[in-house]
Design a protein around this nucleic acid. Structure first.
Lengths: 168, 168
DNA sequence: GGGATCATGTAACGAGTTACATGATTTG
DNA sequence: CAAATCATGTAACTCGTTACATGATCCC
């Protein structure tokens, strides 16, 4: 219960922010609201909720139709969540396939390198447009702004590199 | 051999860029040159090199002192590397603990939120300073510039959020 | 009744981390 | 000769993905 808590924290945070929910509901929320920050499918969420209930972080508040189980965050869960938000030093480990492509770019000749950077630029520009459409007032507004800032920085980087490569 | 090739690609790229090397050498290079793009320890690298040799992507060019095995990239390895660089669509899945903290920030009261953002700002400012010291002319210069752009964007985001939170 | 969606799970696998284990060579 | 570093590996574990499996309920 000491490391790799991130999925738990994401689940606790969603339960705290949006109230009691089933595993199914939480999986939907992962697809939508928290998507650009953390991903998890139902096959990961269901067993994790069972373990979290065993650890006293959530309880089954009610059982609804079709075997639907509604989970609620406990006071202990709220304590753990708050502690993580205030005290956890996020790991700085990065594993980005895009960054790996950019790292290895000097192995390519000029035209191939330009093609690779153009593809990256297009991808991130599309992503920027997607994020730009989302509500800037909701619960996740700070994370959304951060995502936008990082995506925009990547597009600008691509523009600079393209200008640089084409200058030769 | 179709998915999750990233570690292989990183190893092939390092062998292509810097010439033949042992698993130990490659582990050192992961600690230094490619560190801010991809991480891997020796316990992951040694078995992977064995599998890559079995798949014909690398060969043991020579065996040196102390059981040191020097690996070299094969023509097939170069083909696979080039194909990945030109054709692979990087996955957009993000799993950032920092972004998770920012997403859940609205759960905190004003003072706690400020403390969290200040910690994030400090961390990324330190990271920015580190990257700023690195050579801007070496092999990884494009990836370095990208890392700097993203880190700088994060510091700017933190400054804006802090100004916003303190205005209340 | 049949298809869409709701709702929950298990099993097998791959990727990555931590801890453990061993021995050779260099340097003080 | 002792400590540091070079150099390779295995084992156990966690995290995350993909594929498989099942049944209930709603709506046409």
């Amino acid at each position: 219960m000491l490391i790799g808590m991130s999925l738990r924290i994401a689940l606790l945070g969603l339960l705290r922010a949006k109230g009691p929910a089933s595993g199914y509901d939480l999986a939907k929320k992962f697809e939508h609201s928290i998507d650009h920050v953390w991903q998890a499918g139902h096959t990961q969420i269901y067993p994790e909720l069972v373990k979290m209930a065993a650890d006293g972080l959530v309880t089954v508040e009610a059982e609804g139709a079709r075997g639907r189980k509604i989970y609620e965050i406990t006071p202990e869960g709220q304590r753990v969540l708050r502690e993580w938000l205030l005290g956890h030093e996020p790991s700085m480990t990065v594993r980005s396939e895009t960054a790996l492509q950019t790292f290895l770019m000097p192995l390519l000749d000029r035209d191939d390198a330009i093609a690779v950077v153009e593809r990256i630029r297009d991808r991130f520009e599309r992503r920027r447009a997607e994020l730009d459409c989302e509500s800037t007032t909701g619960f996740g507004r700070y994370a959304l702004k951060l995502g936008l800032a990082q995506v925009t920085a990547t597009v600008q980087w691509a523009d600079e590199v393209l200008a640089d490569l084409r200058r030769d």
